[in-house]
Amino acid sequence: MDTQATQTAEEILSERGAPVVMFDQVELAFDEKVVLKNISFTLISGHTKIILGASGSGKSTILKIITGLLRADKGVVWVNGERVDQLSEREMMAVRADLGMIFQEGALFDSLTVRENVGYKLYEESAMPIAEADQRVEEVLGWVGLGEYTDRMPSELSGGQRRRVSIARAMAFKPRILLYDEATTGLDPITATTVDEEIIKLRDLEHVSSIVVTHQLRDAFYVATHMAVRGADGVVTIVPATPEKEREAEFIMIQDGVIVFEGDADALRRSKDPYILTFLS
């Protein structure tokens, strides 16, 4: 009976339109400093939530709460149908099996090769046969255009390549939710666009739900206003999003730990809020 109920919940969560991440009045403070105050939002399956805000506004903290790296002081956090704000580190491991995170600067393991980094979870934390794991690693590295870099060390890669390897590492075990923490910060516009395109391709072709934390407006709007399509010849192209697709990317603007705006790209552009106008200018 229980198994049947679990299967049903899994089926519901894997449907498009199901809530996969939910924050309900979440608060967090470090000593006297309030980092997040009354944060509530929902990420829908297959959609993108773009969290904007100045440095130190609390954006990355939201991702750390989702992954269980930090624990909220108040409020409720649901991830894939699990209430994670009360889980122990050990219980959190099961939730993380369906979560991928791309850290600022990549956070690649500098003593491991690109292949070992990308396949880390498959080699170390799964029972997948080595040959199968190798195949998956080559597949994802090919996806991000770094198929020839398998034996390089992270120190031999450029900033953009490191981010793409980080994306490959996060997607290697096929998580349904990907969290991007400033994935394009510090990159030149051309390299940043290649990273943006990976985010779009994962969302539209692999149906990965994503939360993109950034203060790079150009990248935020690029991800929100473009979509990936696979042609009859199998070639993937990035094209301007349809109005329906555009509405699947929702923006959240955070100022000093408080949400000051929530809506789509169009609503953000039309906002008259002085802080948002300053941020967008």
């Binding site: 790296l69 491991m93 993380r96 850290f103 956070a107 690649l108 934390e125």
Partner: peptide, 22 residues
């Protein structure tokens, strides 16, 4: 220490590895 300040420890945790055991 380097792994902590470059988020590699957090990356390990997110990838399902207990840093103490590893």
């Amino acid at each position: 220490g380097s792994m902590v300040v470059t988020d590699q420890i957090n990356a390990l945790r997110v990838l399902g590895t207990d840093p103490i055991r590893k």
